[in-house]
C-alpha cells in the first residue's frame, strides 16, 4: 500500500486526436469538423516530498493565521494532506477560503458519521495543485444538528448534502434544494443513525416463530 505518497512521474498526459481523417465514401465532408490535436503541458505537483511538505506547511500556516479566532485543530493523517477540525459555525468562510486561496477546487465527498451525542460531518476536498485531498471535519450536537450548506461554494456538494441530510438528519441551512435523494418522499427516519436498527431476515423469522 503506497497510498498517496509516491511522487514518481509514471506517464505524461497524451492528447488523443481523431485517427485518420474519416474517408467517408461519398458522404458530405461537412460532418467531420476540424479538431485541435495539439499537445498541452500538464501542470501537476510533481515536486519532491520536501517541496510538497513545505508548500503544505505554508498553506496551513496561512489558514491558521486567517482563522485565528476559530481555534482550528490541524493534525496529520496518512492519505490526506492534513485533517482540519473547525467549529461548525465557520464552515462557509473556511470552505470559501480553501477554494479561492487554497486551490481546493473540487469537493469530492461530504460524509456524515453518527457518534450518538454528536454527529460528525466530513468534507474531502481535492486540489490539483497539491495533487492531494484535505480532510475537514466538524461536529454538531445531536440535539440540534444543523450547519451552513456549502452548495454555494461547490455545486458538486449539493447531492452529497442531500444524502447526509436524509441519512443522518443533519440540516444544511440555505441549501437550494434540500429534498430526499435516495429515500422515498415523506420518509421520516434517518437510516444511518445508530438508533435505527437493522433487522436481519433470520432475526425476524425467529421472532415470528416465538410469537414476539
Amino acid at each position: 500500500m503506497s497510498e498517496g505518497g509516491g511522487a514518481k512521474a509514471t506517464g505524461e498526459a497524451k492528447p488523443v486526436g481523431p485517427r485518420a481523417p474519416a474517408a467517408s465514401s461519398g458522404a458530405s465532408p461537412a460532418a467531420v469538423p476540424a479538431r485541435s490535436d495539439k499537445a498541452r503541458t500538464v501542470v501537476i505537483a510533481r515536486a519532491s516530498p520536501e517541496v510538497r511538505e513545505r508548500a503544505t506547511q505554508e498553506m496551513m500556516t496561512r489558514l491558521k493565521e486567517r482563522f485565528l479566532g476559530e481555534n482550528l485543530e490541524i493534525t496529520s493523517r496518512p492519505g490526506v494532506l492534513a485533517r482540519v477540525r473547525f467549529p461548525s459555525t465557520a464552515v462557509l468562510p473556511i470552505c470559501t477560503w480553501l477554494r479561492d486561496e487554497g486551490t481546493f477546487g473540487h469537493c469530492a465527498m461530504v460524509a456524515g458519521i453518527d457518534w450518538r451525542e454528536t454527529r460528525e460531518v466530513l468534507y474531502h476536498l481535492w486540489s490539483d495543485h497539491f495533487s492531494a485531498y484535505i480532510e475537514l471535519t466538524t461536529r454538531v450536537p445531536s440535539s440540534d444538528p444543523h450547519l451552513e450548506s456549502v452548495s454555494s461554494v461547490w455545486f458538486g456538494a449539493n447531492w452529497h448534502e442531500r444524502e447526509v441530510w436524509e441519512m443522518l438528519g443533519i440540516r444544511f441551512d440555505h441549501h437550494p434544494d434540500l429534498r430526499h435523494l435516495l429515500l422515498m418522499e415523506g420518509y421520516k427516519f434517518n437510516p444511518l443513525l445508530k438508533t435505527f436498527e437493522l433487522h436481519e431476515p433470520e432475526e425476524l423469522e425467529v421472532k415470528a416463530r416465538l410469537g414476539r
Binding site: 506517464g11 498526459a13 492528447p15 498541452r40
Partner: peptide, 11 residues
C-alpha cells in the same frame, strides 16, 4: 507507481 501508462485527454 511501478507501471508505465499514459493519461488520455481530449479537448
Amino acid at each position: 507507481p511501478e507501471l508505465d501508462f499514459q493519461v488520455a485527454v481530449h479537448d
